[in-house]
Design a protein around this nucleic acid. Structure first.
Length: 144
DNA sequence: GCCAACGTTGGC
DNA sequence: GCCAACGTTGGC
C-alpha cells in the first residue's frame, strides 16, 4: 500500500465537503488535475491506498485522511483531444478521518525530517507521494 | 531539439 | 499584488 497527498482549495472543495458528500452516499471523483506528473501519480494508486487532504491557499494545512476507492478512470470534466480521447484521469476517494490537530505547512517546513516531502520540494504538484516514514510522522504530529 | 515568451500554481 | 518555480507553446 502506498501513501499520497492531494491538494484542494477549501473554498472550492474542502475536507468537510468530502465528508458531507460521503454522508450522502457519494464518493468524490478527484477531477480537474491537468498536470502529467500528478496524473501519473493517480494512475499509480491502488485500491485502499491512503492520502492526506491538504488545503492549499486557505489554511495551508493537512486536515484529514482519505482512501482510494476506485482506480484511475477518465476525467469526464476534461475535453477530449483531437482523436476523441480523454487523456486526463481521476481516482475516486472517500474520507477516512480528520486529523485532530491539522498540520500546517509552516510546521512541515520547520520539521527537519520532512525536508524531503514532495509537498515542500515540488510545491506546485497537486498530487504527490508521501513515504511511509513521512506518513507516520505527520499522523503523529496530527494527533493520531 | 532548443529556447524565449507566456501562463499557472501557490506561498508570502 | 508580487514573485519563484515550473509547465506549455510556438518560432526557428
Amino acid at each position: 500500500m502506498a501513501y499520497w497527498l492531494m491538494k484542494s482549495e477549501p473554498d472550492v472543495f474542502s475536507f468537510d465537503d468530502l465528508v458531507a458528500k460521503n454522508k450522502r452516499g457519494e464518493v468524490e471523483q478527484w477531477h480537474g488535475v491537468r498536470n502529467y506528473t500528478a496524473r501519473n501519480n493517480m494512475v499509480a494508486m491502488q485500491l485502499g491506498d491512503l492520502a492526506f487532504f491538504y488545503h492549499s491557499n486557505i489554511g495551508k494545512e493537512i486536515v484529514g485522511i482519505m482512501k482510494v476507492v476506485a482506480l484511475a478512470h477518465p476525467d469526464t470534466t476534461a475535453e477530449p483531444n483531437e482523436n476523441g480521447k480523454i487523456i486526463w484521469q481521476c481516482v475516486d476517494v472517500e474520507a477516512v478521518r480528520p486529523l485532530p490537530k491539522p498540520v500546517t505547512l509552516a510546521t512541515v517546513k520547520a520539521t527537519p525530517e520532512l525536508a524531503e516531502l514532495e509537498l515542500v520540494k515540488y510545491s506546485r504538484l497537486s498530487v504527490s507521494k508521501v513515504s511511509p516514514a513521512e506518513w507516520d510522522l505527520i499522523c503523529k504530529m496530527g494527533g493520531l
